Structure formats: structure tokens, C-alpha cells
Amino acid sequence: MAPGAQKNLWVAASDGDLTRVKYFIEEEGMSPNAPDQNTYTPMHAAASYGHIELLEYLISKGGDVNVEDEDGDTPLYTAESLDVAKWLVDHGAIINRVNNEGISPAQHLLDDYPAIAHYLSPELAQTGEEEDVEGPSEYAQEQLSEELTNRMMKAVEEIMARAAAEGRDPEDELAALVEKTVLESLDAGEGLVEAEQVATPSLEEPTVPSKRKHTEE
């Protein structure tokens, strides 16, 4: 029985089992680009698990760095380390392409592997890292300002009436009221920003499901 006979070609490639992979390719005549039942190839498996030595062997036997699975994903879409991504690009992996869903390798990897996405597409990664935070709408600000002004004027009238009745200077109490109103205005403004961000539908692209890594035996 061949070494590691319990493994098929794709599991062996995932494990980085060079001896077993060589057996299938050199003794059984299988292709480095052969798809499994999910159209996942040894090239995809080796790239996903970071086996650069195995990738070197596979391309020496005709492995294609741009071989596609049923989703139109090449091995570059499965890269989980920067070294693997760089190796694939150095050996001809196409960066400026999209899969069947219109998603590029950089877009696919952006959420989980931003360093790789930045390497593949610096502009895309920079855009993904920056948050576009907008302030509250003009209408909301006007409503807030009017409410705070009305409340403050009412409080001023009450302070002045009490001070007149008690025969004292209302200056300190008025100063405290102004300070309190300013703080309330700042807190309310932050609340408006948070509320409008929650209420505004996200315009970001839907998260791409992570690439499968496991092959069936």
C-alpha cells in the first residue's frame, strides 16, 4: 500500500504531504490541476494551507496558479499568508480579475486578511480601513438646537423669578445653567450621530463567505 494511502490527492495537498502528492502525480498520473467533487484543486489546497514547497513541486508538474474552481476562484483567493500571496503573484497569479460573483482576490480577502488585500490592492485596503463617519443631518441639528434653546429660556425665566423673589444675584446660577446646556448639547449631538448611523442602511459590499479549506476524503 502506498504511503499515507488513507489520503486522497486533495487531502494530501492540504496536509503538505509531498510524498503522497508525488505518488498520485507520478505513479497514478493525476494532474496538479485535477478538481475534486467540489472543483477544488491541489493548487487551491496547497495555497490555502501555505505549503510553498508543495506549490513549487506542483507547478513543476504543470500546476496552474490561475486554475479556477466552480466559483471562478483561483488559488490566490485561498491565500491566508502574505508569503503565499507573494509567491503566487511572483509565479504569474493574476491580481486584476474577478470571480463569478464579480469579486477580486483583494476584495475577497479584505475582511479576514487585510495585509494580503493591501498587498494586492493598496487603494482598496485603504478604503476598507477608513470609516466614513458623517455628522447628524441639518434638520436634526435644527430640531436639537430649538429644543435646547426653549428649555434654557424656560430655565432662565425660572431662575430670574426666584432670584427676584429672594433678592439675590442670579449670575452664578445662570452661569451654571449655560455650562449644563452646553454639555447637554454635546452629548445630544453625539447621540444623533449614533442614531443616524444605526438608522442608515449599510452601503458596504456583503461579506464574502470564507473559502472552504477542507477537502473530503
Rank of each mutant, 00 (worst) to 15 (best):
G50S: 06
A47Q: 05
I52Q: 13
S31V: 11
M30T: 13
S60H: 09
D64W: 01
M43S: 12
G29I: 03
N33Y: 09
G29M: 03
S48C: 13
L54A: 06
E56F: 11
S48L: 09
N33T: 09
D71C: 00
M30I: 11
I52L: 14
P35G: 10
Y57Q: 12
Q37T: 15
I59M: 08
N33K: 11
G62W: 06
Y49K: 15
E26T: 02
Y57H: 12
N33M: 05
S31D: 12
I52Y: 11
E26R: 04
G50D: 03
T41V: 08
L58F: 07
D69E: 01
G50V: 07
E27P: 04
D69G: 00
T41P: 01
H44W: 06
G50T: 03
A47P: 14
G29F: 05
V67D: 01
D64V: 00
P42M: 00
M30S: 14
A47E: 05
S48Q: 08
F24R: 08
G62Y: 04
E27W: 02
H51E: 07
E53H: 04
A47V: 06
S48T: 09
V65S: 04
L54T: 07
E26H: 02
H44I: 10
E68C: 04
G62S: 06
P42I: 02
A47H: 08
G62F: 05
E28I: 12
D64I: 01
N38P: 03
A47Y: 07
E68T: 05
N66E: 01
D71H: 02
L58H: 12
S48P: 12
D71Y: 02
A34C: 14
V65H: 02
E28A: 09
I25A: 08
L54M: 05
N33H: 13
P42N: 04
G29L: 04
I59V: 15
H51V: 10
I59K: 14
A46E: 07
N66V: 00
E28W: 10
V65M: 02
M43C: 13
E28K: 14
E68F: 06
